[in-house]
């Protein structure tokens, strides 16, 4: 028995399962017909026009972008100082604290969503936007803490000590040595956070309201009612946007490094 052909066959099957459904979505988006079919009936971009003109989609897109940007910024603003304290300060119980900050990764997102729905929206009568913001920021905290922490852990602390030893003020040493060391970690955590928030379903599902709906959940609701080519067109537009994010990632820190953790 030869190992290589079997491995190659399994690998091909794996790529088919990962990528072919995405091609079906793109193919379906360009149909001229009125039902979602593959192969498409004729070629047309009219469904893209419908997707762009759809008011609930464009509103949801704005909401999703706003939520993703603000929650990513908040998670970084709160998470980077945490990473600094964990990696450069002398904090008792460091690994326990780190575990606490990573724990939103372990609790199922629906559980976090339902918890915030009950406590913030029903208990404290807060708006859906605030609950979503808290939920998404909590969800992104592990990335902010771990990814920026990783770039601090890799950097030699003696660089900062050398700057201090050479007479640099604490703030000057931070600005000229530590901050540049942090930059790739912050960039990676920012992109990861943005993508995670923008694509999130389980949290947004329970926390969104009629006034503030996110794009993935709005699409999910739409699919439940009818699955016509508008969803395929909208999906293709999201795919194009995601490719742009991937290119930005590749140009800055490296695409597989950020999203796969592969060096």
């Amino acid at each position: 028995m030869k190992a290589r052909p079997i491995a190659a066959a399994l690998a091909v099957l794996g790529y088919v399962v990962m990528l072919v459904p995405i091609l079906f979505v793109v193919g379906g988006a360009f149909t001229a017909g009125s039902t979602l079919k593959f192969p498409p009936e004729g070629f047309s971009v009219r469904w893209f026009g419908e997707a762009v003109a759809n008011e609930s989609f464009s509103q949801a897109l704005t909401s999703s972008l706003l939520l993703a940007v603000v929650s990513t910024a908040l998670a970084l603003a709160v998470g980077v100082p945490v990473a600094l304290a964990l990696h450069r300060g002398h904090i008792p119980g460091r690994s326990l604290l780190e575990g606490l900050f990573l724990s939103p990764l372990v609790i199922p997102e629906l559980v976090i969503g339902l918890a915030l729905y009950q406590q913030l929206m029903i208990g404290l009568k807060q708006t859906s936007f605030l609950a979503l913001l808290v939920g998404h920021t909590v969800l992104l905290m592990p990335y902010a803490v771990r990814v920026t922490g990783a770039s601090l852990a890799l950097a030699d602390q003696s660089l900062e000590e050398a700057a201090r030893g050479l007479g640099s003020s604490p703030w000057h040493a931070f600005r000229t040595v530590t901050l540049p060391l942090l930059r790739p970690g912050v960039m990676s955590a920012g992109l990861l956070g943005f993508i995670t928030s923008f694509n999130n379903v389980p949290l947004s599902l329970l926390l969104q309201s009629r006034d503030f709906g996110t794009l993935p959940v709005t699409m999910l609701d739409y699919i439940q009612q009818s699955y016509d080519p508008v969803i395929a067109a909208m999906s293709t537009l999201i795919l194009a946007g995601t490719v742009v994010i991937a290119v930005i990632a590749e140009r800055t820190v490296g695409f597989t490094k950020i999203f796969g953790g592969i060096n």
Binding site: P21, I22, F198, N199, V201, L239
Partner: peptide, 11 residues
């Protein structure tokens, strides 16, 4: 990994 679950599942 970057692409929305809704989009991937829709296929």
């Amino acid at each position: 990994l970057l692409l929305s679950n809704v989009v991937r599942t829709f296929g």
